[in-house]
Nucleic acid binder design. Structure first.
Length: 481
RNA sequence: CGGGACGUGGCGCAGUCCGGUAGCGCACUGCAAUGGGGUUGCAGGGGUCGCGGGUUCAAAUCCCGCCGUCCCGACCA
């Protein structure tokens, strides 16, 4: 229902603003269990649209869906040394079932590599069985110390892709391909620009050989890790003895990958686009792309206006537009405007007696501006506007990111930039964990990625921004979520 | 898990210092008018004051413990 209080502004308190946007748009709420969230219909609709877009892209690249169990024998987690070290501290463990203590405790999956490779080893015998390209949509649990709605919750929804290949090159290709899929999805569906690249060893997934990531800059100039794709080498195959007979007749361990994105993306969407009036949702993912608000005084007017609104609703639906007609009689139009604005609905169509007479409707854009447009050809008009808003949101976010990026920084500039407004700092890195740790201790910024070629600076840095020794790669530093 | 703040009808808050039996705004219900950017008026309903224990004739208020939320750290999708 409509609230009477303005949101805290982004500049006053970004965290408070973030929480208030979620509350006003009715995206999620806290559950009675610490750190867990209830995803409400307005939030879940966004997730469903994300799922639809991603699922289609996964299938278009040859993947198939399956489902693996929630419970994993505790011993499985321990089979891969780095993996258990990384995840054991944050697992929830079931020790009792049916009133009895279990012989072996069950871990509630924090991620499913272990159970999946255990199964893969049963299913894969020959090079002819490869590649295996699998995905699952699931919930996972990680006992995080500090939680925030969507960004870090104890339980969250995600997809995890798991693939097995005959060669190292194929696995590497797959890991990069899926990073590309994520990037396309983030740019085109979420309208959220990302920088893709390789993670440093300290940020690598526990058990991976290489981790690729997509990083997005939020409106508070902190970076959000939006998705990761891992080349797991033969690490899990060796731990779970996932072997196959090669074409030449030998025996080899499979080469595998895993990749995932989560409901965290909804947090990224919020912090990329929303404003001090509430949620701004990109049209591609919006529950309703258009809301029609009829305006009338008398019963006669109401009948005419609602009839016209219903006709428009059908016309837009037929054109594939997700549209809602708000016929609530107990709310004035202005109150409805505020409510739908807070919910992030991209466009509002106002339709009153004056419009009927003129053969027009008024179209108001969530990000500002409204104008009368003819009823003739409305669906095409609206579809154009939806596409153009989708582009505008991406371009605005992209421009904001570039305006808050610093290239070729010196040590002092890095410090000042991060201590000031913040953003992405591009600079040389010597490759040592010591410099990485020192920079973190000094500035709180971490290496987000060693960016892919297209994101790198025109002039490659020659020296490490911190120690001055020769640089092995350009790195992007930022404070992160 | 360390530091800080907070927890009072659905939401936002006052009352807590100085103990005396709970109040305001919004929301909600009813009626009437109103209706192109948060509509008025009148009349209503709703609260074990986060939970548990203690002190007291008496606890939202004082004391102890716990739980939760938010912020800042350390850890992380």
């Amino acid at each position: 229902m409509s609230k009477n209080k303005a949101l805290t502004s982004r500049s006053d308190d970004f965290s408070a603003w973030y929480n208030e946007v979620i509350a006003r748009a009715e995206l999620a709420d806290h559950s009675p269990v610490r750190g867990c969230m209830v995803i409400r219909p307005n939030g879940y609709a966004i997730w469903e649209h994300m799922q639809q877009d991603l699922d289609r892209m996964f299938k278009d690249t040859g993947h198939e869906n399956a489902y693996f169990p929630l419970f994993i024998p505790q011993s499985f987690l321990a089979k891969e040394a780095e993996h258990v070290e990384g995840f054991a501290p944050e697992t929830a463990v079931v020790t009792h079932g049916g009133g009895k203590e279990l012989e072996e405790p069950l871990v509630v999956r924090p991620t499913s590599e272990t159970i999946i490779y255990a199964m893969f080893s049963k299913w894969i015998q020959s090079w002819r069985d490869l590649p295996v390209l699998m995905n699952q949509w699931a919930n996972v649990v990680r006992w995080e110390l500090r939680t925030r709605l969507f960004l870090r919750t104890t339980e969250f929804l995600w997809q995890e892709g798991h693939t097995a290949h005959a060669t190292e090159a194929e696995a590497e290709e797959e890991a990069l391909r899926m990073m590309g899929v994520y990037r396309t999805f983030m740019e085109e569906s979420i309208a959220m620009p990302v920088i893709t690249g390789l993670k440093s060893d300290s940020e690598r997934f526990a058990g991976a050989v290489r981790t690729y990531a997509a990083e997005a800059l939020m409106q508070d100039n902190k970076s959000l890790q939006a998705g990761t794709s891992h080349n797991l080498g033969q690490n899990f195959a060796k731990a779970f003895d996932t072997t196959f007979q090669t074409e030449a007749g030998g025996l080899d361990h499979v080469w595998s990958t895993s990749w995932g994105v989560s409901t965290r993306l909804i947090g990224g969407l919020i912090m990329t686009h929303s404003d001090d009036n509430g949620l701004v949702c990109p049209p591609r993912l919006a529950r309703y792309q258009v809301v029609i608000v009829p305006i009338y005084r008398t019963d006669e007017q109401r009948a005419g206006v609602v009839e016209a609104a219903e006709r428009i609703q059908l016309e837009l639906r037929a054109a594939g537009i997700r549209v809602h007609l708000d016929t609530r009689d107990d709310m004035k139009p202005g109150a409805k405007y505020y409510e739908w604005e807070g919910r992030g609905t991209p466009f509002r169509i106002e339709l009153g007696p004056r419009d009927l007479e003129a053969g027009t409707v008024v179209i108001a854009k969530r990000t500002g501006g409204k104008e009368p447009v003819p009823m003739e050809g409305l669906a095409a008009n609206v579809n154009e506007r939806l596409e153009s808003l989708q582009r505008e949101l991406f371009e605005a976010a992209h421009a904001r990111r570039e305006a808050n990026s610093l290239r070729g920084a010196t040590r002092e500039q890095l410090r000042e930039f991060i201590a000031g407004d913040g953003g992405f700092v591009y600079a040389g890195w010597c490759g040592s964990e010591q410099c990485e740790a020192d920079i973190k201790a000094d500035t709180k910024a971490t290496i987000r990625v060693l960016p892919d070629e297209e994101f790198r600076s025109a002039e490659a840095p020659g020296t490490c921004v911190w120690c001055g020794k020769p640089s092995v790669a350009e790195a992007v530093w930022a404070k992160a979520y």
